[in-house]
Design a protein around this nucleic acid. Structure first.
Lengths: 127, 127
DNA sequence: GTGAATTCCTACCATATTACTATGCTTTCA
DNA sequence: TGAAAGCATAGTAATATGGTAGGAATTCAC
């Protein structure tokens, strides 16, 4: 039940950008400040850009900026983008033979609580 | 952020044993009822035995029984055994260079909520 | 307008994990 | 005594993880 470094790195990069907001930061600055491989971070931050959490400026003196105010971006948004949807299990196909899918109650409760927790945390609180 | 089938299968097996409690069930019975590969389940249930959640009776007419009452066993116990500890991130070694480890707040809050949720659900509620 | 600094794109790669399967031994009861 | 159960260990195909490599495209400072 570990989260991958993708979620962690993505979140840390977003917080770094939140600190600079509304100014921009480039990959080198973020990767050095956060001690994350620059090349890897480059591919990760691409996901955040494609999902409209950050915008980029190309070319010399380019970099990245948050698209929204840090108050409007939640940890849940970031983590879902980096890791995919939260706890989607037991759609029925796995446990059709069991009369009642006993474990679905667990996954549903859990997914609800995780989402509630993560979407309540805004980047502005993490600066 | 998916849970593996190990957690799911382990939980379903435990619920199946809870239904039978205090009688025993064998691998074939559980695997057929839950539609889980018998051989795979055998290795999974071994973990539950080594962690003292179930006891086994060997030999002909053998099988497995819960060691405690279903009211005394939580989903959290089962899932931690099957998947390892819940959300242990950010021990400091990853993010020492950042002045404050911004993401640790997220993982700590999250781990707390996940544990609270999972340890509050008892097998007796899932029957 | 040239060059350096930056992002963007795609492919590759080593390792670990997952979800099994296979084989065979050991134990126990009918 | 033999069949039915659990126990132990190893193998394996597919996928995910956590990167690296190389270079193309863009943009700004000069």
């Amino acid at each position: 039940m570990q989260f991958s470094t993708k979620a962690e790195y993505g979140l840390r990069a977003m917080v770094a950008l939140a600190r600079a907001y509304p100014a921009q930061k480039n990959i080198t600055e973020i990767s050095e400040a956060e001690n994350i491989s620059a090349k890897y971070l480059e591919t990760l931050i691409g996901k955040l850009r494609k999902n409209n959490l950050v915008k980029s400026q190309k070319g010399k003196s380019g970099g990245y900026t948050l698209i929204k105010n840090p108050k409007q971006i939640s940890a849940g948004e970031v983590i879902e983008i980096m890791e995919g949807p939260i706890v989607s299990k037991c759609d029925g196909s796995n446990c059709m033979k069991a009369k009642v899918c006993a474990s679905s109650l667990v996954w549903n409760k859990l997914a609800f609580q995780i989402k509630k927790t993560l979407f309540a945390i805004k980047l502005s609180e993490l600066i």
